[in-house]
Amino acid sequence: MTYHLVRFLSFIACLLPGSFCDAFGRILALALWPFLPARRKKLAVSQVAMCLGTDEEESKRIAKESAVRFGPMLFEVLRFPVIMRRMADYVEIEGAGHLREVLSQGKGAVIATGHTGNWELMGGALSQAGFPIIGVAMRQRDAAMDRFINEYRRLVGMHIIYKNDVREMFRMMKEGWVVGLLADQDTNRHDGIVLDFLGRPTNCVPGPATMARSAGIGIIPGYITRKKDGTHKIILHAPIEVPRTKDKRADIRAAQQAVNRVLEQHIREHPEEWFWLHDRWKSLRKES
């Protein structure tokens, strides 16, 4: 039932003008904002202030905008069948040459991105631009929503692999695929490494650096941001080389820390677009 309802909403959204869906998505998100748990909103505000040094008023504004943006983002995903027809007009790609350069080595590529901007749209835009993108997905608790989002990811050209299928990722990388990894959320302490992020010790995922080191290629930090006219721009940075010394763990730490630095700069430039509602320092707080 849920699956068919969401498909119906997508059908309606595709019939409506994009500007209307964008405005309606924002209005809907603003209406839902008061119903978000106060604890979660307080956490987001405190993280903004802690990381960016903003005063209370500005921290509240950034935290709210960070949540409200999910309204327009949702409608963009619902409108994938329409957007994909003119993706090149809707999403500009800066730095595509960096990705082509890495792919020219014949070892695949790794893009380290984050929960900033419309990351779902980013994968689709790169796929539509001709890059063989693997979207690494987390299985949704709701099977209907899992089916829907993965169908739409495939619709715009992505190949979807669940995050526990690491062997398949490595196999496809060797065939020249691009693995896109979200590398900005807290993971379990067993799998994570503690690095500096926004001025704080933070539990980080080592996946991008681990995969890039194994393949002998650099990591490409890449993010998407929304422009004032409602279109988007993907920014692909120059590859970060991963050292290959006898100390594998130190190599991974060095490369992943460098990726963090690029993400930090992006967040400072576009603070409203990052997912501040996520409890980024949860695992380390529990240890203290």
Rank of each mutant, 00 (worst) to 15 (best):
M158P: 12
T225Y: 05
L16N: 06
I193V: 10
G95F: 14
G117W: 04
R61P: 13
P17T: 03
E58V: 01
A129C: 09
F11N: 13
L32V: 13
E287P: 00
E58Q: 10
M158Q: 15
T2Y: 08
D55R: 08
D89N: 12
F170P: 00
V102I: 12
S214P: 01
E273H: 03
V68N: 01
I240Q: 05
E287D: 10
R40P: 05
A63P: 03
V6P: 10
F35N: 11
A255R: 05
F20L: 15
I27L: 15
A143Q: 12
V242Q: 01
T113K: 00
G25V: 03
G176M: 11
R40M: 08
R189N: 08
M87E: 06
L236C: 12
D89M: 03
F20H: 09
R244L: 00
L36G: 08
H232S: 05
S66G: 10
S288I: 15
I219V: 14
L181P: 05
G218C: 06
N164M: 11
L9W: 02
A112P: 09
D251G: 03
A255N: 04
A49F: 05
P208R: 03
E58I: 00
M158A: 14
A109T: 07
A49H: 12
L284I: 10
K282H: 11
D89Q: 13
R249V: 13
G18R: 13
T245P: 01
I252E: 01
R213Q: 04
L15F: 03
V6E: 07
Y152S: 08
G18K: 09
E241G: 00
W33E: 13
K60A: 13
I133K: 07
L277S: 06
R226T: 02
H4E: 07
K248I: 05
E57L: 15
R86F: 15
G230Y: 04
W119Q: 11
V242S: 02
Q105T: 12
A67H: 04
H266F: 04
H232G: 00
G216Y: 07
N203G: 09
R85L: 13
N118E: 14
Q257G: 11
V205M: 10
D165N: 14
L16T: 15
A258T: 06
E94W: 01
N260H: 08
A49C: 07
G106T: 06
R226N: 07
Q185A: 06
D196R: 04
L155G: 07
S66N: 01
F275H: 10
M169Q: 06
I234R: 10
R85C: 09
Y223V: 15
Q105M: 05
L74Q: 08
R147Q: 11
A29W: 04
E264Q: 06
V68R: 03
M211R: 13
L99I: 03
L195Q: 08
G71Y: 05
A31N: 02
G207M: 01
A96C: 09
A13P: 09
A88V: 06
R100N: 08
R86N: 15
G135S: 13
L198V: 11
K282L: 07
S46M: 06
A143F: 01
A212I: 04
M172F: 11
I224V: 12
